[in-house]
Design a protein around this nucleic acid. Structure first.
Lengths: 205, 205
DNA sequence: TTAGCATTGAAACAAATGTACTCTAATACA
DNA sequence: TGTATTAGAGTACATTTGTTTCAATGCTAA
């Protein structure tokens, strides 16, 4: 990972760098030198060339010489986050290894129509889903593919939306909490709308 | 979200589209028509122009007319995942609202030097960190900024790496599990190496 | 101040590039 | 079979664009 300490930018360089990052995020392609010129309020491409050269020398950007709009931000080239190893949450078992496996969050994020919900309450606490967590859900296309024990978000019309374990026994639907202090909810299929099934849990501390 | 059903592509169009997506992912900028020409094994820009026009009409791409390398993939423009509302994990409280808040996972991912660890064991179960979860950690730069109660990954040389609550009392360091069946570990500062503090938890089901 | 250096403005050039056009070959269809 | 449609090759051209060069300006340190 570049762009760390030791490569301090001048104000002008930093302003340009931030503008470029923003532009490329918005447009998915590199700006031209004359565009940057205008954006920086300059009347000549030379200062931009100079700043780009410095940004390149300091490892912030790169481009293909002579080719139009071929800049790349060398930062932020990561696919997920490196998984450095495993950590014991029990005894002291495993040491920090140096695997290069990748935590592919994007695998979940890339699915179509994924949505997130904020969790209120503690009824799923035994499933390690706590108050304030975000749950990432996937819409349920075919109800009949839902397996018993899946965690789903379901709306019971007139009551509200809730996150529960799903069970089907005969014609009855049961929504069960992961917390002994909550009673299972028994429903008929026509009294419940399933919004999604659990894909992942995200908790920011 | 475009690119769904109804906009079927011919084989040639699809091949080009996939190649473009791949190129733009790798290089962070749009390819030129002549590059696409070569990649598709063609000897004239005309077929590429035609295919691009079709891709644009079907809503897959867009570009700025006359400008070099200004293509954009119109698909996949998402910042995180939409948070559709909150869901009760207790009683049936809240209904599906239509907020447009965004779950900004990238906020965490954008931090420098973030790394991930796989959790083994259940010693942090009362903190809702379960066996198999991924914990996203941030390196600890200044030890003295560590607050009591922070969850850290620490290496006790000769033993291994572990995930625990951090406490400092006087000169002693305590690593405490979130599980009554584990005893706190008492250490001197020189006998422990802190690798990171907890930023987020990720669990894929 | 003055010499030296970096920044900017200005202009010009050549390469890269999108676009338009014609022609030919292949394909589909009736 | 013949015609219409489509895809591709080839070419040409104007614009965009990176790059170079030179002079003017501003700033800093001796």
């Amino acid at each position: 990972m570049l762009n760390s300490e030791g490569n301090n930018l001048t104000d002008a360089q930093n302003e340009l760098y931030l503008w470029i990052k923003n532009y490329m995020k918005d447009f998915q392609h590199s700006p031209s030198i004359r565009q940057m010129m205008q954006a920086m309020g300059l009347k000549s491409p030379a200062p931009i060339q100079s700043r780009l050269k410095h940004l390149q020398e300091k490892g912030y950007i790169s481009w293909q010489e002579g080719k139009a709009r071929t800049m790349q931000i060398v930062d932020e080239i990561f696919e997920g986050i490196p998984v450095l190893g495993s950590v014991a949450a029990g005894g002291l078992i495993e040491t920090f290894t140096d695997t290069t496996e990748n935590l592919d969050i994007s695998e979940v994020l890339a699915k179509k129509n994924v949505f997130a919900l904020t969790v209120n309450g503690d009824s799923m606490i035994d499933a390690c889903i706590a108050d304030g967590d975000m749950v990432l859900m996937e819409p349920i296309n075919e109800f009949y593919s839902l397996k018993n024990g899946t965690i789903v978000s379901a709306m019971v019309p007139g009551l509200g939306t809730t996150l529960k374990y799903f069970f089907k026994r005969g014609e009855k639907i049961f929504l069960e909490a992961a917390n002994p202090s909550y009673e299972p909810i028994e429903l008929n299929l026509e009294n419940v709308v399933f919004q999604g099934k659990l894909l992942a849990v995200w908790r920011k501390v």
